[in-house]
């Protein structure tokens, strides 16, 4: 075998293929080999923008949940939230790659340089005002009660959407959605069970769960208002008009809160899209600083 300079060399020599050890960086394109041809009639700019909205929701919520690792009430819950975050990260990678295949990279490409994959360029090299996630996931974390209520609302909305998107005329979006449905079902059930446990638990857990619901409910104000992109894609049967999700989502959430002996806060009136058009509070930039710091400081870094 000869003299080996480093431990890494020894590993790759022993196993014969350096990709076997690519856990740090160098992840493969999650759409490798997938047919990414566009559905007839759909504007690639619209489809890409739509994939950014749904991908950003998943990426930002994943990053928020990951922040609970080492801080959750019990070890099993850290594993649970990490698993949920990993599912969402996988959905985000597929969707951001799909946005890239539609050519929707904005200024991220010139900032990232030519060698960074599309998904990484979009995740690490966009500023906060270029993100298209909903305010629901961008809002800062509160306590654990707030986190499970937010997860309940976000996964209920996303599951209702994914169930419909299985019928999208874009085969990639339809496949990503079909894969996401069983995952989101787990996420929603997990969050719902925590809300029941906290709401119908002790006076303190009830108080915290109620405070979580009271804080999260206003964040749903723009979840059911379509952007122009969503309206056009719904017309093309590629996307879904979020207005169509309202009754199902509110029905599920009401059912959970009532079972949890929590008061259902008043539903906010619909407002025009905010996060979906890039209007975010300062908390998103703070989250992105943590997510993007290393890649921005050392573009293309590998380890």
């Amino acid at each position: 075998m000869g003299h080996l300079e480093t431990v890494y060399d020894a590993l790759t020599a022993a196993h014969g293929d350096e990709a076997r050890w690519a856990f740090g960086t160098g992840f493969d394109d999650p759409l490798a080999g997938v047919d990414t041809a566009l559905p007839a009639g759909a504007d690639p700019a619209d489809l890409g923008a739509y994939c950014l909205m749904l991908g950003d929701d998943a990426l930002v919520l994943s990053q928020r949940l990951t922040g609970w690792i080492t801080r959750a009430p019990e070890l099993e819950e850290e594993v649970a939230l990490a698993n949920i975050a990993l599912d969402l990260l996988g959905q985000a990678r597929l969707l951001l790659s799909r946005a890239g295949s539609c050519g929707v990279l904005g200024r991220s490409r010139e900032r990232a340089g030519a060698t960074v994959p599309d998904e990484d360029a979009l995740a690490y090299f966009r500023d906060a005002d270029e993100f298209r996630c909903a305010g629901l996931v961008a809002a800062p974390d509160g306590d654990f009660g707030h986190t499970v209520v937010r997860l309940l609302v976000a996964s209920t909305w996303r599951l209702a959407l994914a169930a419909r998107l299985r019928g999208s005329r874009d085969p990639v979006l339809a496949a990503v959605a079909a894969k996401a449905v069983p995952e989101l079902t787990y996420h929603r059930d997990h969050a719902a069970r925590w809300v029941l446990r906290l709401g119908d638990g002790t006076a303190e857990s009830h108080r915290r769960a109620q405070a979580g619901a009271d804080a999260v409910w206003p964040l749903t104000a723009d979840l059911f208002t379509p952007t122009d992109v969503e309206r056009r894609l719904a017309g093309e049967r590629v996307g879904v008009d979020p207005t169509d999700l309202r009754d199902e989502v509110r029905g599920v959430l009401t059912q959970v809160l009532e079972r949890a002996t929590l008061a259902v806060p008043p539903w906010p009136g619909d407002v025009p899209p905010r996060g979906r058009v890039g209007a975010h509070g300062p908390e998103l930039a703070v989250l992105l600083a943590g997510l993007q710091g290393l890649s921005r400081a050392h573009p293309g870094a590998t380890w």
């Binding site: 076997r20 085969p171 069983p182």
Partner: peptide, 29 residues
């Protein structure tokens, strides 16, 4: 997935197959 892909390439190359294309299919899930 990346490890599976690398292991498949490696095993097939070792068995003498020069050109190997490992593709991802998403559907059915």
């Amino acid at each position: 997935m990346g490890v599976m892909r690398a292991d498949l390439l490696h095993a097939l190359h070792d068995a003498g197959f020069e050109q190997v294309d490992v593709r991802t299919v998403l559907s059915p899930a």
